[in-house]
Write a protein that binds this DNA or RNA. Structure first.
Length: 602
DNA sequence: GTAGGGTTAG
């Protein structure tokens, strides 16, 4: 016989409430929800329907509803309990949803395939999928039949846990044994998985295949591929696909347009932004919060914080109030232009507008301070975080550690890393990169090499950036042979050098007078399909000057200009330095080169 | 009543 407070509720209260009772400051004030003995069944049922769409405001409400439901005799239909679980999923309380599902079973509350599917969905959001598959076994053992939703959920779960091969295997098995008829969600899920693992061409093939098999793709199917094409900088292809959608009578929605807008902005296709926004207007698709946030971000990344603020003004006028992401983006914009004081003002503005800063907000500002070498201000913010109920994360600590290393304050690094571990933050690959880089930059080369070996043993050194950092450290500390040794082993380790890796090694060769080797590596880089960037050109040009290869410098500079790259400050100042101070000491070749170069630059 | 797509930071 269920009590007024079920054992499950007690467990949940004691275990989860400390983290979930804080009211959400973003939500409008609402009358407190307390289902009382006078709450009628129809009221409760209506509330359940509503909450299954929007989620609960807090866990406490959810548990009160559950207790109330248990008191009703005869038991409410299964659909109502399913709505309760769905509401928990909407609140992102996945582990609570699973506990509650188990409670259903213990209390012999009837469940159906939808209940199981919702439980599986919750499980897929947690760290392990084992329970999801045991639920699948449970469905079959209990005599139910898993449906297409069950399998779609599991496929998505496998994909989001980085297990694409198992997802593919499951999909193929389902087809072969005719367990289910895949639908548009099945195909869209797999297409998105392919897109997110850089297999866009396979995704396009699957798109054609599903159509051939008579399954009509929808806007979501196309949006996944459009996003992938945009991220690969194939924006024109993405635009073509939108035309295809229109021809096929699949109208793009606001997410499709936002995806494209993001693609245009990241590819600096500003001239195409206005027309896209007009098209949205013509299609009667008003911009949403995401749309505005993309625009704010685009302006900020270009240093146009005034335009970004104008967009925010428009948002407010159009009743699309800015959220924490909007303000964080603006703060980042101010930090990018070195205006940390303005960024701090934004932090206060958001508080005044009733939007609570989150961990990101602090991380952005801390990063801004670290870049300006204002480490004490960064550390003050770190101390302010717990006061506001925000827990610093691994990124907060890594950012400050990076800043401390840049300032040469390696003694403070030690303490901060200890604090980070003590507070339960696990270092990630970025923390490792920062530590390795910091050791190299602070001339702890032997320690850096030992740290690298330790990472190798733990299996986390398999990362091109880690190798590049070590190669750079070795080169800068005049250990070219060791650097070269590691560089030569990259391919056999299955690592592909990137622009930075090549450029670092080229710099190493130039610095040691091995200009021929640098040139060979540059051509190797080009043949491998890795295009030199502005830094590569500036590096090898400085190398050619350092090695007195003026004629080659001329060719390289012309090459660089043909690619629309410019000489940077250090290349330019190097040329200026070359100008002999005394007329009599002039070397005609040097002088000719310098004159030519300055003509090019000025 | 359950499943699939888009925005911020080291």
């Amino acid at each position: 016989m269920p009590q007024s407070v079920s054992p499950c509720s007690l467990l949940l209260h004691s275990h989860f409430l400390p983290f979930s009772t804080k009211p959400n400051p973003n939500s409008q004030p609402k009358p407190p929800f307390i289902p009382s003995p006078s709450t009628t069944h129809p009221e409760l049922q209506q509330l359940l329907y509503h909450k299954s769409k929007v989620g609960f405001d807090n866990l406490h409400d959810a548990l009160l509803v559950f207790d109330k439901m248990l008191q009703i005799k005869p038991l409410l239909p299964v659909i109502k309990f399913n709505q309760l679980l769905t509401a928990l999923v909407r609140t992102k309380e996945y582990s609570v949803a699973i506990s509650m599902f188990r409670e259903f079973r213990l209390l012999s509350i009837p469940v159906d395939i939808v209940t199981f599917n919702t439980a599986i969905h919750s499980t897929c959001h947690l760290s392990t999928l084992d329970y999801a598959f045991s639920l699948l076994a449970g469905i079959i053992k209990s005599g139910w039949v898993p449906d297409v939703v069950t399998y779609n959920t599991l496929i998505k779960g496998l994909l989001s846990h980085d297990r694409p091969l198992e997802a593919e295997h499951l999909f193929k098995k389902l087809i072969i044994y005719k367990e289910i008829q895949p639908n548009v969600v099945t195909y869209s899920t797999i297409i998105d998985g392919l897109c997110k693992t850089s297999n866009t061409s396979m995704a396009l093939k699957l798109l054609r295949k599903m159509e051939k098999l008579g399954c009509k793709p929808d806007a979501i199917t196309y949006t996944s591929i459009i996003d992938s094409l945009c991220k690969e900088r194939r924006v024109d292809h993405a635009l073509d696909l939108v035309s295809v959608m229109s021809v096929k009578g699949i109208p793009p929605n606001v997410i499709t347009y936002n995806t494209l807008l993001q693609g245009l902005c990241s590819s600096s296709r500003w001239e195409d932004v206005e027309p896209l926004l007009s098209e949205m207007g013509a299609q009667k698709i008003p911009p949403d919060l995401h749309t505005y946030n993309i625009l704010v971000d685009a302006h900020c990344k270009e240093g146009r914080t005034i335009d970004a603020q104008d967009v925010i003004e428009i948002m407010i006028k159009k009743s699309v109030p800015p959220d924490v992401i909007t303000y964080n983006t603006l703060m980042d914009g101010f930090c990018l232009t070195g205006k940390t004081d303005r960024a701090l003002e934004v932090l206060n503005t958001m508080r005044n507008n009733g939007i609570a800063p989150n961990c990101y907000s602090f991380n952005i500002l801390i990063n801004g301070y670290c870049k300006r070498q204002e480490l004490d201000k960064a550390i003050n913010l770190l101390r302010q975080m717990p006061v506001e109920g925000i827990k610093a994360d691994v990124q907060t600590y890594s950012t400050i550690v990076h800043g401390l290393f840049q300032m040469g304050r390696h003694n403070d690094v030690h303490n901060l890393l200890h604090e980070m571990l003590k507070k339960g933050n696990k270092p990630d690959i970025v923390t490792c990169r920062i530590l390795l880089d910091g050791l190299c930059k602070n001339r702890y080369m032997d320690e850096a090499i030992s740290f690298f070996r330790m990472m190798e043993c733990k299996g986390i050194a398999h990362d091109i950036q880690i190798h590049t950092i070590l190669i750079d450290g070795l080169c800068k500390n005049r250990k070219l042979d060791e650097a070269r040794n590691i560089f030569d082993k990259l391919a056999s380790r299955g690592l592909q050098p990137n622009v930075k890796t090549y450029t670092t090694m080229i710099q190493g060769f130039c610095q040691e007078g091995l200009f021929e080797e640098a040139k060979i590596l540059l051509s190797e880089m080009e043949t491998s399909g890795c295009l030199p960037n502005d830094v590569t050109y500036n590096t090898i040009i400085r190398g050619s000057l350092l090695n007195k290869r003026y004629e080659e410098a001329v060719v390289l500079i012309e090459n660089m200009r043909a690619h629309n790259y410019k000489a940077d400050a250090s290349t330019t100042s190097m040329v200026v330095e070359l100008f002999p101070k005394e007329q009599e000491e002039q070397d005609p070749a040097v002088l000719a080169f310098c004159k030519w170069f300055l003509q090019q630059v000025l």
